[in-house]
Design a protein around this nucleic acid. Sequence first.
DNA 1: TTGTAAGCGTTATCAC
DNA 2: GTGATAACGCTTACAA
Lengths: 348, 348
Amino acid sequence: MTAEKTPGRKRRGAGRVTLNTVAKQAGVSAITVSRYFNQPEQVSPERRERIAAVVNELGYVPNLVAGGLASARGKIVAMVIPNISGPIFANTIQGFSDTLSRHGYQLLLASSYFSLEQEENAVRAFLGWSPAALVLTSHFHSAGTEKMIAETDIPVIETWDYQPERDPVQIGFSHYEVGVAAARYLHGKGYRRIAFVQNSAAGDLSALERRDGYTATILELGLEPWVFTPDADRAPFEAGKQAMDALMNAALRPDAIIFANDNLAAGGLLAGQRAGLKVPEGCAVLGFGDYPFAEMLLPSLSTIKPPALEMGVMAATRVLESLGELPVEHEVSRLNLLECLLIERESA
Amino acid sequence: MTAEKTPGRKRRGAGRVTLNTVAKQAGVSAITVSRYFNQPEQVSPERRERIAAVVNELGYVPNLVAGGLASARGKIVAMVIPNISGPIFANTIQGFSDTLSRHGYQLLLASSYFSLEQEENAVRAFLGWSPAALVLTSHFHSAGTEKMIAETDIPVIETWDYQPERDPVQIGFSHYEVGVAAARYLHGKGYRRIAFVQNSAAGDLSALERRDGYTATILELGLEPWVFTPDADRAPFEAGKQAMDALMNAALRPDAIIFANDNLAAGGLLAGQRAGLKVPEGCAVLGFGDYPFAEMLLPSLSTIKPPALEMGVMAATRVLESLGELPVEHEVSRLNLLECLLIERESA
DNA sequence: TTGTAAGCGTTATCAC
DNA sequence: GTGATAACGCTTACAA
């Protein structure tokens, strides 16, 4: 592409500009050029200047692959996330990536689509790049993944969850407690027939923990749990609509519904409105995620906002601390419990 | 992390499981193990089995860094996108990443935030990993970036744009034509005072091209162009609100507004409704992007949907073709013009 | 502050 | 089908 350059890309970097090219041209040794990039303060200003000129003239770009091999620690960090395009995880990726890139680290990214197998494949491939750290989502992994993260030497971080008893650094919140908070909130508002709508994405195991928190709390309050499960793998909006239709046609309607996430809630909201339902008078609706559209719906969607961006930034911070790029007090804090925020809007 | 393993991570891969470990254990040479991974059909079934057993037992993970250095082509592809967490680019990333990972390639990702300088930094860092290909967004680059992509041997692809005269593979659409289509559509609907609201994100140069298409068309139709520019770098919703307030307070109101993207349009819509404006009767609203919430607004947002996912998939396909991973008819198609779709909903 | 020598773990090359 | 050997471009270790 970009017009035909070399006829068939020479294999072993023929004629490439390397550290040695620069070194020769600048009249210094290779290691000095290497230091110029990695510990410039150890190079005399005079040579620094000379090297800078040559680097610029030759358009030399350090080969990080070679550097990574030589030093056994590439400036690259790997992250596996359930869904790149979901509004909910994007902020985490962004916070993570931005913080890292400020320190010269690059992001290797893959999505698992809530599939443990895909996650395992991604982790295996990533480890082959000997990243400086590995960031995963939730504590649900395949046996193979567990084995790899137990045996690797690199820092492993789990986000979007909080399981103190696990080995990896934990940065997140308790999904169970989110379920508890949702139920308590609606109960406090006076609702008594509170239903929970599951995620249609099979594999979203964290959503099941939110449901468990809901169920336990409802029982504790002396109410009756009521979980609706949409058809597996329906599109979220559709699943929300399906749930709302089903619940509204029940003999005894719920007076409040907790949806596993805002996409479902939005679908439910729309279906309800189309059927003439008034929200929240006829039925309250509570989501999870605080997706960007939540405040733009009519009625605006009450929801629980996870600390998505913060988790990304903190994950990057912990990584940088482990790598010695950032100062640490005593040791890198392994348990990082963050707060979700219940955002009260019009729908509940 | 993950409990203290090695006390202080031994430097030069001490005691690591390498190709040689596997080779010795299996009683074959290193290169045979290498072939087992890369061209298994060249290894006798008997040895294949023996190697497989050892690999499994030792939990060997090939070091892709070393492989990349030796072969000068790592199985990694780099992408620079303006905004990871924007709903509009996420689909492109996803289509790209998924298609690639199916062929064993990993994704190196960075966001530029519409900053040419950040883009240049990302490209420089990425090239150091000698990726198999480099994917950029739009044709707006710094001189430094241009130099690098002109000199590199790896395939370069530009997405989200279409500039036939440029060297890199083009996968996208004409922003100018989007502006033309928007203006024509509203004119066809009978609107005559059609305004255009710019993006508040300074650096979104593609949005300026859409504006240019709008302006030219409006003039061609004998109407008066009317471009409103929100304060630079306001949050999108706020910028949309600002624009709507300003336009509605003008002496002669517009009867239709094209917003540079759906975020702005949503902000405008909300501000209008709050002020008692009826959409589209009082003023029509047209967005760009078809963000997920567009169909959930009341009134639902008419918008122009770019082929986001398709661009990602096609970019990956072209990359894989260039790498010989996918069959090609004659040569990898350099010009790939895709269509945007005008989605007519309630707001215009 | 600077340099020399020895790898890092894999694959290309060429021979068998 | 299999193997010995020499890179790949850089950094570590040690010396000056």
